[in-house]
Nucleic acid binder design. Structure first.
Length: 270
DNA sequence: ACCCAGGATGGTG
DNA sequence: CACCATCATGGG
């Protein structure tokens, strides 16, 4: 497709923001992006972007995935100018987007994320893809997608541990057992009909998914942008910069997006 | 040799 | 309810 201009959108910031683990950097400002059986190359020069797919595929699939219909300019403009830390975080990550990712991809990624670091999460998720996922072609190479539950049905906790999942290997084994067959489609249906708190509670019934991981799944896999995952980094930010409490009420509706600015800023700035 | 990383679980007070 | 040890593993 022809190059297009997009504001408030930066590939590198998103790739390094700890929300997705399958963006492969090919060069500066150039990434192979794969999800849900598709794979494209995305490249950026300033506010000009090129995508290695047809205009039609971009409009019907990737535009939603990148969350390009959300007005991030308005969200940033709504930040309290008296809040120096949040203002700086949003300016620093001004091209951030909270992607609309696939539910199962997010479930696996953030099950593995617990008590772990971003670099090792990525290598584990990519290891799962290469060992069990189905191949997909990009113009610049073959990649593998996240394996479906049934693709993992015969794997054991020992197999997952061999990929470096550590103690989380048995969490994944039991999660696969719960999601194989019609488990995942039924879960999708249930969650779609639930309010945020209900969906969060439902996810926490699954082995290895607690409060924080369930929040990440709601935010990144269901695009429930009111969820505000509190991990160790966000905990430190809240304790250090918001001792009187974060103004959650002021930002109803976009809390998860602000959380993403804060997380990326704390993780990569300086 | 400790401490930390996008924490969850099971046990105890 | 709150607190606490434990869970793999790689990197500082």
């Amino acid at each position: 497709m022809e190059p297009i201009f997009i504001e408030h959108f930066n590939l590198r910031q998103i790739a390094d923001s700890g929300q997705c683990f399958l963006w492969q950097q090919l060069a500066e400002n150039r990434y192979a992006v794969r999800t849900q059986g598709r794979c494209i190359v995305a490249a950026q020069e300033g506010e000009q972007f090129t995508f290695s797919c047809t205009q039609d595929e971009f409009e019907t699939f990737w535009r939603a995935y990148f969350d390009l219909d959300e007005d991030y300019g308005a969200i940033k403009a709504g930040i309290d100018p008296a809040d120096a830390y949040l203002t700086a975080a949003a300016a620093y990550g001004s091209g951030m987007r909270v992607l609309r990712q696939d539910l199962w991809e997010v479930m696996i990624s953030f099950l593995i994320s617990q008590n772990n670091n971003v670099k090792r999460i990525g290598s584990s998720v990519r290891g799962l893809c290469e060992a069990y996922g189905r191949a997909c072609e990009s113009p610049e190479g073959t990649y593998h997608n996240i394996p479906e539950p049934d693709d993992l049905a015969d794997a054991t906790a020992a197999d997952f541990a061999a990929l470096g999942l550590g103690y989380r290997a048995r969490y994944l084994e039991s999660l696969v057992r719960e999601m194989r067959g019609d488990g995942l489609p039924r879960l999708r249906e249930q969650l779609a009909a639930m309010a945020d708190d209900e969906a969060h509670a439902r996810l926490m019934e699954l082995t290895g998914i607690g409060r924080k991981v369930a929040d990440c799944i709601c935010l990144y896999g269901l695009h429930r942008t009111d969820r505000f995952p509190v991990d160790t980094h966000i905990r430190q930010i809240l304790d250090t910069h918001y001792p009187e409490g974060f103004p959650f009420a002021r930002y109803q509706g976009s809390l998860g997006i602000l959380q993403q600015y804060l997380f990326y800023y704390k993780l990569t700035a300086k």
